[in-house]
Nucleic acid binder design. Structure first.
Length: 567
RNA sequence: UGCCCGAUGGUGUAAUUGGCAACACGUCUGACUCUGGAUCAGAAGAGUUCAGGUUCGAGACCUGAUCGGGCAACCA
């Protein structure tokens, strides 16, 4: 969304997206009494993902922006697929994102009685009929996009017979699939959806809310618009694939009302994110086949997964705002999402010391047995965040990456003879190092200059690098889970010949076991977020135990050194 | 051979009575820095899918084409 600063007024004038433009025009014309009432209508058959987050932010955001209301309505017209488990997770996700729906949460199944009455009305008006044909016959008669369909032999039976049959369908007299109720529209319509679409099918299935009351269930096209109408929805937002359904949405409304009030369906392009998949089917497959550890695996683009990963609601909302909304197909660079979290986390997150891949460093001239407390600022971006004391001693751990036996000139860290600052403490100089049998650096020996303590103000040697560290004797052990993109291909689902699973990134999860953290982190609670100084943003995973903290990497810090090395 | 959408830098989104294309991410420079983070300063990068037309003037309007997406569940 672009803002433009008008100099005279000093006010921000936001440019409108196409939906806002429609809404403002409707308000202008006092359409529907100038009300704005949207709804978020998930089917409770899976977990919400970032694409839904876009829709949630849109619907609830528009309601807020125009002093309107937004309902949460579960589209539960298919008892075979839907479950209460999902209802709960969806409500949790919406609330977590920071939105509150208007009144109670609602269900399409709340309207089954009314929908049935209206169906009866349509039958009486000769606008609907019961078709006894098998599914594949009906399907064949529907024709193709380029060839008109043909009319069902049952299309013109009497109102009485239709009424009788439909009542008996409701009563459960017929088996699944034996009959349907169809709208009588136009089998020759160039729009496939207008070729006598099915309104009701027979389903002897237990519904998660209505139990065994119903043996027939309404189809989406029939139920959705009527539900909107019953709730007083004014702007019914959905994704592009429903564009061709709109004439049907309007047609069904025409059959039951002549009132001036009308909900309007508006379609927008769904979100696509690079390096991931978004379809429920594919996400389900990842879970079912065990490629990830459940719906809330931090690598999943689900809201639950992102929450566990450490994303904040504010960052997701900012993301939704930034990507805007339009009708053209789009693929958002996942880098933008990452930028949004960093931006938020940078402001709110306490900085802490954590060494992921530790190597021992001994300060040879530091007195044996001495320790001291070093004061560290919690967050330089937040003046109110204060400071804390962190233990420092003769033996420390530093990051293995921060030392090179034979460093290049541009390497600003430690190497034989080189000087660096230990963050918040002293300047040290590397005097020596030891290798183990594998040739890996096992211990680094340094000397320190007591005069260089942080804040001492004394003229200090200029050093190029500053390292993070932890006191070896006081550090706590932790497990750290490093997450990377789940797929190594930008568009894993976009290959005709190859299955998306072939593009799974084998390194999407790296578990580090011997990480060393500053002591204060022992008491961090699940969900708490930190910046591991110089590394990235991390949060405490629910798997965390008091004696075994577990941290998830939300996103790494921007790393120019790594970038330089790639080139 | 049908119907419905869409097309603006690498990626998104703007340009609201037609007035010489803006913002964000990314990229590249440089400054600063006790996070190679953040911040700050700057740069490159599109002439708006193409061809006609209307107009003094078109990314916006008209016509045609091209390309991309969607539509043939008793799914939503």
């Amino acid at each position: 969304m672009t803002t433009d600063h008008t100099e005279e007024s000093g006010k921000e004038k936001k440019s409108l997206n196409f939906i806002e433009a429609i809404i403002e025009e409707d308000i202008q014309n006092r359409k529907n009494d100038a009300r704005v009432h949207t709804r978020f209508p998930p089917e409770p058959n899976g977990y919400l993902h970032i694409g839904h987050a876009k829709s949630i932010c849109l619907n609830f955001g528009l309601a807020e922006e125009y002093n309107g209301k937004c309902n949460l309505r579960f589209d539960d017209t298919n008892p075979e697929k839907e479950d209460t488990e999902y209802v709960d997770s969806i409500m949790e996700d919406v609330r977590w994102l920071g939105f509150q729906w208007h009144g109670q949460h609602l269900y399409a199944s709340d309207y089954f009685d009314q929908l049935f009455e209206w169906a009866l009305l349509m039958i009486r008006q000769g606008k609907a009929y019961v078709d006894d044909q098998a599914q594949d016959v009906i399907s064949q008669q529907r024709g193709t996009p380029t060839r008109p369909g043909i009319e069902s032999p049952f299309r013109n039976r009497s109102v009485e017979e239709n009424l009788d049959l439909f009542m008996r369908m409701k009563a459960g007299e017929f088996p699944n699939g034996s009959r349907v109720l169809r709208a009588k529209i136009d089998m020759a319509s160039p729009n496939m959806h207008m070729r006598d679409p099915v309104m009701y099918r027979i389903l002897h299935a237990e519904h998660h809310r209505t139990g065994n009351k119903w043996k027939i269930y309404p189809m989406y096209d029939y139920a959705h618009g009527q539900s909107d109408y019953l709730e007083g929805i004014t702007h019914s937002l959905c994704t592009l694939e429903f564009e061709v359904h709109r004439p049907l949405y309007d047609w069904f409304l025409d059959q039951v009302t002549e009132s001036a009030y009308r909900p309007r369906q508006i379609e927008f392009a769904r979100l696509n994110l690079s390096y991931t998949v978004m379809s429920k089917r594919k996400l389900l497959e990842l879970v079912k086949k065990g490629y990830v550890n459940g719906w809330d695996d931090p690598r999943m683009p689900t809201i639950a997964g992102m929450r566990r990963r450490g994303y904040t609601p504010a960052s997701l909302r900012a993301f939704a705002d930034r990507i805007g909304v339009a009708k053209r197909d789009n693929t958002i660079d996942v880098g933008l999402l990452e930028f949004m979290v960093r931006e938020d986390l940078n402001k709110i997150t306490p900085r802490v010391m954590a060494v992921l891949d530790p190597v021992k460093l001994i300060i040879t001239n530091y007195p044996d047995g001495q320790t001291e407390d070093i004061e560290l600022i919690n967050n330089p971006e937040d003046a109110d965040s204060g400071s804390r004391m962190v233990p420092f001693g003769k033996e420390l751990f530093i990051e293995r990456d921060d030392f090179m036996v034979d460093p290049p000139k541009k390497f600003f860290r430690l190497g034989p003879g080189r000087q660096v600052r230990l963050k918040g403490a002293y300047v040290i100089q590397c005097e020596n190092f030891e290798l183990d049998e594998q040739g890996q650096v096992s211990t680094i020996y340094c000397t320190y200059d007591p005069e260089t303590k942080s804040g001492s103000g004394s003229s200090q040697p200029k050093v190029k690098g500053t390292l993070h560290w932890v006191d070896a004797s006081k550090a706590i052990d932790a497990e750290v889970r490093l997450y990377d993109r789940l797929f190594s291909d930008e568009d894993p689902a976009g290959h005709k010949e190859q299955d998306f699973l072939e593009f799974l990134n084998p390194d999407s999860l790296k578990v580090l076991q011997n990480c060393k953290l500053e002591p204060m982190l022992a008491t961090a609670k699940a969900g708490e977020k930190f910046q591991f100084q110089r590394i990235g943003y991390f949060c405490v995973d629910p798997d965390s135990k008091t004696d075994k903290p577990v941290f998830n990497r939300t996103v790494s810090l921007k790393d120019n050194w790594a970038k330089m090395n790639q080139q």
